[in-house]
Design a protein around this nucleic acid. Structure first.
Lengths: 351, 351
DNA sequence: ACGCGCATTGCAATCGATTGCATTGAAGCC
DNA sequence: GGCTTCAATGCAATCGATTGCAATGCGCGT
């Protein structure tokens, strides 16, 4: 007796009709009982609920959503740059996803995590068009302000973590990047640093603003930026770029890296070249990821209100879904966290 | 240029019937045309597809899934320990999620990311029972082998990242933790370290195995473990615990931390107490997270084949869904990556 | 005893797609 | 020309729930 695989169609998922049969009532009654409708008598309701628990029955939420038209899933979209999926490696992203997961769970939403090509942000729209998700949370606006505007204009529920930009039709939440950049400039100058470089891809709006804030503040103090390097948020490139900068300009004494990841990479490269941090070169990062304070040396950095930001994004998205008018851009305060990596040059005094 | 786009018609998503009307055919035809069925003539198919693109129409995959019974969503479940959501902060998890996202996307599946209480792993079952996901990928078995067994026994499609255990009914994929532990022991001994401590929560099967492998190898060389501390995977506790250990036993010269995160925390604590790493104390981590090689000092650690592991988990789960018989436990090779944090004691020589 | 009202419950339509089967019309064959 | 054949399309049932409305039954007032 050679039963071909499927030794059993062991149990198809039980469904409402089955439970109804077991309880000797109609599916309508089961539906109402499980939903806690007051139309159902106390007895019946409890009997049915017990039965459901006993048989591990859970209403099929796909069917429910279809019928009721309400969706309880939000897509969180993490773009990656072509050729590398490494963008996902940034601990900042990790923190953000955690914050979003918390905020969504708290309000009873599920989170669909999706990665897309950063060149085609609008591809994310199919998640909503296809009914998989009620709305979109996008992390970073990358180089496609235009695509985002188009998405928003056709009425897609959308919130983006990123910078406030001119002529912006979509809703953003983000830290105050200009302010962040200024804070760093002020700090480095106060530590007596003057030969400064900037690390980061200014093709990204957020980074561009950090850069503008940074250079604006420097200019006000009559200091000129020595160099800037366009580098993506990748450890490896950070390391290489920092090394290259040192070759060109060995007397650098301060680095502003536009993310903590880059800062850590830069510190690695500096040490490899025999520079001491912070004695010879002060390094400041951005984001204040959890590891920043445990790095060696502990990282001075600009703290982004990640948890507050995640909650704000969810709030804005749900408001949109509820049909409310939402503020176009929300800019959150940032603050500088001073740690070892940028302490004053101390005694060394030279140059 | 006046492609006057429909003025914000936030009302209703277009649906198949609408498109059918526009194309002057029935919904069946549209369905088949979009699915690329050979039943439809070339002309019609193209006309409909163009139309769909024009109107940003995407078939509602919720309805599709309901009707066809096929689900294209997998739930990835990240447990958190009560009282703290910080478990999400471990960079290892982040890497794992990235690997899973890649593997799932590659096969055309969506990823539902879900956090649950580590005490109630079985709560994750509702995601499948409720039809939201076709199957479950759980990261870590935590303290609930029994719950997992029960889930598997009632036929839930499930794969767990974790250790191979006796009497295991569910499917696991994981690194060879015993081997990992042995590798670390061998390495530390080879570096001349003898006063060793272990950091990690042996209540978790994976950690317990690392611990067993570690101590077994030590014993074979006649060395005895000095101390072990039961500490969760949290930076803060790692730091405090390391400090406490040092108080009790100031002459420690080697630390095996059961995760890179803990290793980094331990290094922080050691430095605070004036110990040099690796000169005074060698530290070895576990996981080989991306930052490990960029830490200061670069971390010696046991590399877990995260990408391969993610792919393997997806593979096993899809096999289960296809009704195939799958191997119960898959154990992947690990290897030691030697870096600065555990270099031989060198010249220091003292007490 | 009759009728009314209220508390429960069931029937059947519906959500947005897919798909087996029937239908149509034209081409092919003798 | 009449009949078969086949390609292309439409009809209607279906997936697993929800919900407006109709139906049932029981208590109670008079």
């Amino acid at each position: 007796m050679n039963r071909r695989s499927t030794p059993a169609d062991p149990r198809k998922r039980m469904q409402m009709a089955d439970l109804a049969r077991l309880a000797g009532v109609s599916a309508s009654t089961v539906s109402r009982a499980l939903a806690g409708s007051p139309l159902i008598s106390e007895d019946t309701r409890e009997r049915i609920q017990t039965l459901a628990r006993q048989f591990n029955y859970t209403v099929n939420s796909v069917a429910t959503d279809l019928r009721s038209g309400v969706k309880r899933t939000i897509a969180v979209v993490v773009p990656y740059e072509q050729g590398t999926r490494q963008s996902f490696a940034d601990p900042f992203l990790h923190g953000m996803i955690g914050a979003l997961a918390d905020a969504l769970t708290e309000r009873g939403y599920e989170m669909l995590l999706s990665r897309i090509d950063a060149e085609r942000l609008d591809a994310a729209a199919t998640l909503v068009d296809g009914g998989r998700a009620a709305g979109l949370i996008l992390i970073g606006q990358w180089r496609h302000h235009d695509q985002l505007n188009a998405m928003a204009e056709r009425g897609l529920p959308l919130v983006v973590w990123g910078a406030k930009l001119p002529r912006q039709k979509y809703c953003t939440v983000g830290g105050d990047n200009m302010q962040g950049g200024r804070l760093v400039a002020g700090h480095l100058l106060a530590q007596g640093r003057r030969r400064l470089v900037f690390l980061g891809d200014t093709g990204l709006p957020e980074v561009a603003q950090r850069f503008r804030g940074f250079t604006a503040a420097l200019k006000e103090h009559g200091v000129e930026l020595q160099q800037r390097a366009n580098v993506p948020f990748l450890v490896e490139s950070g390391r290489q770029t920092m090394a290259a900068l040192l070759d060109e300009q060995p007397d650098i004494d301060g680095v502003f890296a536009s993310s903590d990841l880059l800062a850590m990479a830069a510190i690695g490269a500096l040490r490899e070249r025999g520079r001491r941090v912070p004695e010879d070169v002060a390094v400041v990062g951005y984001d204040d990821v959890e590891l920043a304070r445990h790095f060696n040396p502990p990282l001075t950095t600009v703290s982004q209100p990640i948890h507050e930001g995640g909650a704000a994004m969810v709030e804005q998205l749900l408001a949109q879904l509820a049909g409310e008018e939402v503020t176009r851009a929300r800019v959150l305060d940032t603050r500088l966290v001073e740690r070892e990596s940028s302490r004053a040059a101390g005694s060394p005094a030279h140059g």
